Amino acid sequence: MATFLYQHDSFLNHLTPVGHPERPDRIRALKDVLADPHFDALVKIDAPMGDVETVLYAHPEHYLNMIRDAIPDAGITRIDNDTVASPGSWEAALRGFGAANKAVDEVMSGKAGNAFCAIRPPGHHAERNTAMGFCLFNNVVIAARHAQKAHGVERVAIVDFDVHHGNGTQDMLWDDPTALYCSTHQMPLYPGTGALSETGEHGTIVNAPLSPGDGSAQFREAMESRIFPAITQFQPDLILISAGFDAHHRDPLAQINLHGEDFTWVTGKLLDLADAHASGRVVSVLEGGYDLMGLAESAACHINELMNASS
């Protein structure tokens, strides 16, 4: 088996204002680093258009219609101060969760060893009824629900190492005993959620906040003391990763000082947990990462570990 990489040129067509950190160049940076012959073993697949009905696994119909209606015929429209839409945003959004859902299909069927979805816009800040933090639809929650509905998966774990807390994912899974949400993130920082005390109705929300200036030692301790034991106890059938790379020391939006080797380490540990509890089933979905060099380095380390596990 191999690692499947989902990508598509439509992700370049979700346009943002000049100077906006969530920009098409993020996808170009990933394409450039993955063009190295080392990554030739990746099975590269065009991200498919997602079934719009699967959005309703995470968001109500009125929200889906609101996002569709917000797509402009020309130019860029603001949904909130940070979150925008352009004429190409609808296709990009549909191919984003379409990639995540298809990756789940291929991993659950055994066709793929694991998968990485190089998509944008990101998703983990999107709450049930609110687009925010650059996010329109919550891709990873849609994929988790798809795994449960289409493949009979009983327990899904979502691990989020983006430097910003995935408030949207937490919001959607707060009272769900069938889904574990684990997050490392900087606090205080946008969006302001993710305290240790936020554990959900069933203890299936596990937050491990980091402080500005923290680096490898604190990140690894948070993972080893809180998140890895929670996954072991939960015994998931599938692990989804909200793979944000903005905890890299170069990133302009936060003050956590991780390096490429930290993303290698955490990916390897999650793959080991997947081997132990989830028959190796892992799907990773791109979230943040706003320094292009930091994003490229970190994602390459992450994907290299995925490839090592599936070879």
Rank of each mutant, 00 (worst) to 15 (best):
T184L: 15
G194C: 06
T193V: 09
H165D: 08
M172V: 02
V156D: 13
W174S: 03
R145Y: 12
Q186H: 02
L180F: 02
A195I: 13
A150S: 14
V163H: 04
P177T: 07
H164Q: 03
V159Q: 07
D160Q: 04
H165N: 08
T199L: 08
S183N: 00
Y190Q: 05
A144Q: 11
Y181R: 15
L189N: 07
T193D: 01
T169G: 14
A150C: 11
Y190R: 02
T193M: 04
P177G: 05
A147C: 07
L196H: 15
M187T: 15
H146A: 00
P191G: 00
H151M: 09
G192R: 03
G168K: 03
E201S: 15
P188A: 14
G192H: 06
A143D: 01
L189S: 14
A195G: 12
H202V: 04
H164E: 01
N167A: 02
H146I: 02
V159F: 08
D162W: 00
G166P: 10
P191V: 02
H185T: 01
D175M: 15
R155A: 08
Q148N: 09
T199Y: 10
C182P: 11
A150K: 11
E154H: 15
A147V: 15
G194H: 08
G194T: 10
A195Q: 12
E201I: 13
Q186G: 09
H185K: 00
H202E: 06
A144H: 13
S197H: 13
T169H: 06
G200D: 06
V159K: 04
E154F: 06
T184R: 10
A150Y: 12
G192S: 05
G166D: 06
S197G: 13
G152L: 15
A143F: 00
S183C: 01
G200Q: 08
V153N: 00
D175I: 12
G192P: 05
E154C: 15
V159R: 02
D160T: 06
K149I: 08
W174Y: 14
H164Y: 01
W174L: 13
L196P: 15
K149A: 12
G152M: 07
H164T: 03
A195C: 13
S197L: 09
D160F: 07
C182W: 01
Y190H: 05
A144M: 06
E198A: 09
E198G: 10
R145A: 11
G194P: 04
G168T: 03
Q170F: 05
P177M: 03
S197R: 12
